[in-house]
Amino acid sequence: GKELVLALYDYQEKSPREVTMKKGDILTLLNSTNKDWWKVEVKATANDKTYERQGFVPAAYVKKL
């Protein structure tokens, strides 16, 4: 199945390749080969529509579930 990670801290994206997350968010882990930056998929809701974004977050800010 898919691997999930838990956001340990809030993170505000600093570039278009990154994604914003809030502490407590559960994210889908896409790639953890880089030890510093993990690629995740974030589900977000805006205007009653759910959309998914993929991007990088600092590996130290998340932990595998």
Rank of each mutant, 00 (worst) to 15 (best):
R53M: 07
K35G: 08
A59I: 03
P58F: 05
Y11T: 01
W37K: 02
M21I: 15
Y61K: 07
E41H: 07
V19A: 06
K22A: 08
L30Q: 03
V19N: 01
Q12D: 14
Y61P: 02
E18R: 04
W37D: 00
S32Q: 09
K23V: 06
Y9K: 13
E41V: 12
D48C: 14
K43L: 14
L30A: 02
Y11S: 00
V42S: 11
P58M: 04
D48W: 06
V5T: 02
K63R: 11
K43Y: 13
I26A: 02
A46E: 13
T28Q: 09
T28M: 10
K39M: 15
N34K: 05
T20C: 06
V57I: 08
P58T: 01
T20G: 08
K43G: 10
W38H: 02
G55F: 07
V42L: 12
A44W: 15
L6S: 04
L27W: 03
F56L: 09
S32G: 10
A46W: 13
V62Q: 05
K43M: 15
L65I: 14
F56H: 04
R53V: 08
P58V: 03
L6T: 06
L65C: 14
Q12I: 14
Y61L: 15
D48E: 12
K22V: 08
L8Y: 03
K14I: 08
V62N: 00
V42R: 11
K39Y: 15
R17H: 13
A46Q: 13
A60Q: 12
L65Y: 07
T50D: 12
E3R: 11
T20F: 04
V40D: 00
G55E: 00
L30Y: 03
T50A: 11
I26M: 05
G24N: 06
K14H: 08
Y51Q: 10
E52S: 14
D25P: 00
K2L: 12
T28Y: 12
V42Y: 09
N34I: 05
Y9E: 08
S32K: 07
D36F: 14
N47D: 13
D10N: 08
A7M: 02
L27K: 00
D48R: 07
Y61H: 08
E3A: 10
W38D: 00
N34D: 14
K64T: 08
P58R: 03
L4G: 03
I26K: 04
L29N: 00
P58L: 05
Y11C: 04
T20L: 01
T33D: 15
K23A: 12
E41Y: 07
Y51M: 10
E41L: 12
V62F: 05
G55T: 01
A44I: 15
V57Y: 01
T45P: 08
T28A: 09
A46V: 15
L6F: 07
A59Q: 04
K22Q: 07
T33M: 12
T33W: 09
V19T: 05
K14M: 11
K14A: 09
K43T: 14
N47Q: 10
T33S: 13
Y9C: 15
P16T: 09
V40R: 00
K43C: 15
K49Y: 12
K23H: 05
E18L: 05
K23T: 06
W37N: 00
V57M: 03
M21S: 00
K64L: 14
Y9M: 10
T28L: 15
R17C: 15
R17L: 14
Y61I: 08
L6E: 11
T45K: 11
V57P: 01
K35L: 08
E18D: 04
E18W: 02
N47W: 11
V42Q: 15
G1W: 11
L8I: 09
K64W: 07
D48H: 09
R17E: 12
K23R: 10
E18K: 04
A44D: 10
V5M: 04
N31G: 06
T50K: 09
K63T: 13
L27T: 01
A60R: 15
V5W: 06
T45I: 13
G55N: 01
T20Y: 03
